[in-house]
Amino acid sequence: MVNLIRSELLKLKRSKMIIISILGAMVTPIMVFVGVLKAKFTTADKIVTYADIFSESNLYIMLLFGVIVYTVIGSYLFSREYVEKTLKIILTVPVSRVTFIVVKFLMLLVWIIALTVITWVCSLFFAVLSRASEFSMLILKQSIIEYFWGGILLFLMISPFVFIAIYSKGVVVPIITAASVVMINIAVSNENLAALFPWTSSYLLVTGQIENTGYPMWLAIFLISLVSLSGFISSVIYFKKEDIV
């Protein structure tokens, strides 16, 4: 398992996807910062707090940009083995198919957490740059917890896209699917029904807003678990039985 993880890390050497994903993780804090600048130009005495910046950045990551960026990463990690035709050389080493896919998911989790850290640090940086007010250690701590759980939940919600990447053996179909999910996120985010749409309810769960929708928390957790497990299990079963051609 350790050697598989080491090999996964080596596979990313010189990979352009690293820099692309870092830029992707920085986009939301930059967007929020631009929004703050615009607001300050419009209303000179506009007060922006640390909590606002962390919260908005997390909102954009969890509902919009993160879904796309993490889908791209997840799809890349899995589909590159098909595109570069490396499975026939790796699996004949031999490497267990189940272990292989578990390590891939582990890499995706590590990558998502690393990007979450980058997003949080960038948000903090831009909050300082925009002279945000109401700084406190409590806000920092709370934002770290929200970002961390946000990253974990986004990882769980990426699993169906990973299955699509394995099935379609490319990145295009999962990205289109993820873009559709983002559109639904936008459509339902202000509705009570958001609690029933796992990609939106993840955000509501992390920010403690799920109960405002009138739906019980257990239902949201159940739906998130159901979608996530479906993604993981179908990926493993399909990959295990698939003929490598």
């Binding site: 050497k13 010189r14 990979s15 352009k16 570069e84 499975l87 050389i89």
Partner: peptide
Amino acid sequence: GFYENLTARENLQIL
């Protein structure tokens, strides 16, 4: 098929 961003040695190191 090998990893396109890696050299021959790095590809063999993975194996």
